[in-house]
Write a protein that binds this DNA or RNA. Structure first.
Length: 191
DNA sequence: CTTTGGATCGTCT
DNA sequence: GACGATCCAAAGG
């Protein structure tokens, strides 16, 4: 398995998000299949961190596609996004949940609160904690990863023909848009 | 199983 | 100085 090419990320976040389902997120020896995502749309999306233009925090979203935007949420957790679309468009796809594939022991050690394996990666904060993603990974290049750094690959599993769709979770502004996609029936999708 | 409230801090107003 | 793209433990049914 090799990193997906830069061209894969050169799309509007609403188009790319469902294509990310069933792709594999790799961090060192830990691997998880992406089963839930949300699209955020920069200046056209009041819920996006990029809505009001570039700041220190969101700078990565205004760079080239195929990089990781990692931010600190609620003073407690890290959340990871894939930057996509036209450079400087501020588009990104939030990685909301994954199915553990490899490195399960490391994930369990990183998430002692998880009682069952389905609790390891079933949320944006949980996914980052299980895979060890933090602020040091903000800006990481998913196309040309550093040793042990994060990247995305395709193991031959296609995206679902009919993914589940719903409104986005946990936001207050622009909450009406159906820009969340997930693998229907998959037990690792967040609640 | 569902609901509720606390934790905790970087970021932007 | 207020708030947030969340998680978890505790309590109640």
């Amino acid at each position: 398995m090799r990193p997906l090419p830069r061209s894969f990320y050169d799309h509007d976040s609403r188009l790319l998000a469902p294509l990310l389902l069933n792709k594999v997120l790799v961090v060192g020896e830990r691997r998880a299949r992406i089963v839930e995502v949300e699209a955020y749309r920069g200046a056209e999306d009041p819920a996006s961190h990029a809505y009001r233009g570039p700041t220190r925090r969101n700078a990565v979203m205004f760079g080239p596609p195929g990089h990781l935007y990692v931010y600190f949420s609620y003073g407690v957790h890290w959340c990871a996004n894939v930057v996509c679309g036209e450079p400087a468009a501020g588009h990104a796809v939030l990685l909301r949940a994954g199915a553990p594939l490899a490195g399960l022991d490391a994930m369990r050690a990183a998430r002692p609160a998880a009682r069952r394996d389905r609790d390891l990666c079933s949320g944006p904060g949980k996914l980052c904690q299980a895979l060890g993603l933090t602020g040091t990974d903000d800006g990481a290049d998913l196309v040309a990863p550093t040793p042990g750094g994060p990247w995305l690959g395709d193991d031959g599993t296609p995206p679902p023909a009919e993914p589940g769709v719903s409104v986005r979770i946990g936001i207050t502004r622009a909450a009406e848009h159906p820009w969340r996609w997930f693998v229907a029936g998959e037990p690792n999708v967040s609640r």
